[in-house]
């Protein structure tokens, strides 16, 4: 199944089987099942990029990848390894939340320990509730112990720099945020990162995003994986249940990161 943006892409020939570094892989078979949830509704800020980067970096490690783009009139499969959810505008966000609540596939996948990363509007949907386009409180999926209110001040728009929760062992995060929501964190989650530049959750305490176990939410797009390939690698490692992956070239990502980090620290 493929969403009609894409074209068959050509990749380098497959390398040796993945089992060589996955001792107790969660993966049901040798290919990574990458589920992109609702690109018809939640793909406003280049969110396709996250799926493309995860896929690329998995293939560079010799993994097969089965990308499953799930349109909002289709059932969300429960057997995916990694689920990506993007950002969207207010009305599509409400529609996505309604359909995901009715579908329950994502919730069941999460109960089975699936790896989920959601951005912006998708992040808000993973929480208990958010404010929808009609100004009403809209229930989310409750997969993250967060809830979102509407910010009173100016929209949070601009480049972000943040230090990730040290337990995740990730380098500095760089990205772009564009949201009005203010996301409050409950006891059941930790902040994904703490901002040095930017607004993050918008609560004024410097927190950015939230995570628990294998479920992650962030306000950063850019898309976030393009500027932070280590996040893509983290998801792949979680899916394989390994601590390390074979190296894969990061020359251009590193150059972009250096440029964006410098530009964000010292705006023109």
């Amino acid at each position: 199944m493929s969403f009609p943006t894409g074209h068959p892409q050509q990749y380098e020939p497959q390398q040796p089987a993945p089992q060589q570094y996955g001792r107790s892989s969660r993966m049901s078979d040798s290919s990574l099942r990458l589920v992109w949830v609702y690109p018809d509704l939640l793909s406003t800020y280049g969110d396709r990029g996250n799926a493309l980067v995860v896929e690329r970096r998995a293939r560079q490690r010799g993994l097969g990848v089965q990308r499953i783009d799930v349109r909002s009139d289709q059932a969300v499969p429960t057997s995916g390894d990694i689920y990506l959810i993007g950002g969207g505008e207010d009305r599509p966000q409400r529609l996505a939340a309604e359909r995901l609540r009715n579908d329950s596939g994502l919730v069941r996948a999460a109960e089975n320990g699936a790896i989920i990363l959601a951005v912006c509007a998708g992040y808000q949907i993973l929480g208990h509730e958010f404010v929808n386009d009609l100004g009403e409180r809209e229930p989310g999926l409750g997969l993250l112990d967060v809830w979102t209110t509407r910010g009173e001040g100016a929209r949070c728009v601009g480049d972000v720099l943040a230090e990730v929760d040290p337990r995740l062992g990730l380098p500095q995060l760089t990205g772009f945020e564009n949201h009005q929501g203010v996301t409050h964190l409950g006891q059941g989650v930790s902040p994904f990162a703490n901002v040095q530049v930017g607004r993050g959750n918008g609560t004024g305490d410097g927190t950015e995003g939230a995570w628990r176990d294998t479920v992650f939410g962030t306000y950063l797009h850019g898309p976030v994986m393009a500027r932070n390939p280590a996040v893509a690698d983290m998801l792949i490692k979680l899916a394989l249940d390994v601590n390390a992956l074979p190296p894969a070239d990061t020359t251009w990502y590193d150059a972009l990161r250096a440029e964006r980090i410098a530009a964000t620290r010292q705006p023109a």
Binding site: D47, N178, W252
Partner: peptide, 28 residues
């Protein structure tokens, strides 16, 4: 100022062309 739209463009279509990239956001 947000370059995320680059990921919505099917640059894959340029396969086979010699490609040169420039501009302020050439690294993106």
């Amino acid at each position: 100022t947000d370059t995320s739209w680059l990921w919505d463009v099917d640059y894959e279509r340029l396969a086979g062309h010699p490609i040169f990239v420039m501009g302020q956001r050439k690294l993106d």
